[in-house]
Design a binder for these strands. Structure first.
Lengths: 160, 160
DNA sequence: GTTCTTGCAAAGGCTTTGCAGTTCT
DNA sequence: AGAACTGCAAAGCCTTTGCAAGAAC
């Protein structure tokens, strides 16, 4: 199986005036602590997508002692601010990526092997526009996801 | 937020020779017990999508005493056989629908209110074909998912 | 009789939350 | 100082699994 996710548009503003509650710790105070910055930096430097666990390990090297909960809270805060995006594939753990680093792109994920690939396709934009007009949806922070079977995994069970 | 999911193609065969292991209970024996039938029937009769919990309650009325675990196992089995489909939206519980009852369609889901809508769009097929050719993916059981903000939750354009 | 299916309860994985101490403006 | 942020551990949610009993072929 494959999931194709197409980032259609950038999210919110980049200023930390997101609406996330006090839990995520960036609602009113809008502070940007070292850990939070480290989390964002980790995402920005990453080539692909990272799970919270991976971010946790990476940040742990820069700022020893950083807790997993903090990473989760930071990720949530960053996503709320539009500085990061969260992607979920089926029952796999969520993966994150920094927003704005690259242009909107699609994601290809094979549920069998879990690999994620990116791509861009103008058809996605047209589709988005049509749907937006037809259903009144505003997929501003949206993406497009398709599941199927990737080439490699399809080749494996080709004998069927 | 919205997720637009487009069913691109029907899944596997409808015969119960799926590859799911002994856990789901339909690998080699291919039995179709009353509970399993009840689960499938519930999905078929449902207008929209149902969560495992909803299926559980529904089946519980037809066949009192049916356990939640059985429902989950049945759903997994049915999905493996291609008789049902599982849809996951972000961190919400998975929802299910019977396959083959209706023609392939897309799904619109608002993450804010959780509502799911369906639609069809030829652009989805074209997109699928192009991606299949370009990346060698076979989104046979796939769908297309877009996230954004739905009309009602956006509190703006009212137009169905 | 053998193999598959169930119920119940317990476990599991990922993520969130409570709380008290720490850090930042 | 006062509000945010953090770590740790515990809790939560949805889903899966272990096991013995029951049902199907």
């Amino acid at each position: 199986m494959i999931i194709i996710i197409i980032m259609l548009k950038a999210e919110k503003n980049t200023n930390c005036d997101c609406g996330c509650g006090p839990t995520c710790g960036c609602a009113s105070g809008k502070r940007c602590s070292r850990r939070r910055k480290a989390v964002l930096q980790t995402l920005s430097e990453a080539k692909g997508h990272l799970t919270a666990e991976q971010v946790y390990r990476s940040v742990g090297q820069k700022l020893p002692g950083t807790g997993l909960a903090t990473v989760y809270r930071s990720l949530k805060c960053l996503c709320g601010c539009g500085k990061a995006r969260e992607l979920k594939y089926g029952d796999r753990p969520a993966v994150y990526e920094a927003a704005g680093v690259r242009s909107p792109h699609g994601h290809l994920l094979c549920l069998a092997c879990g690999a994620v690939r990116e791509f861009s396709d103008p058809a996605a934009d047209r589709l988005r526009e049509r749907l937006a007009a037809e259903y009144g949806f505003a997929p501003q922070a949206g993406w497009l996801e398709i599941r199927g079977t990737c080439a490699r995994c399809a080749g494996v069970k080709e004998r069927k």
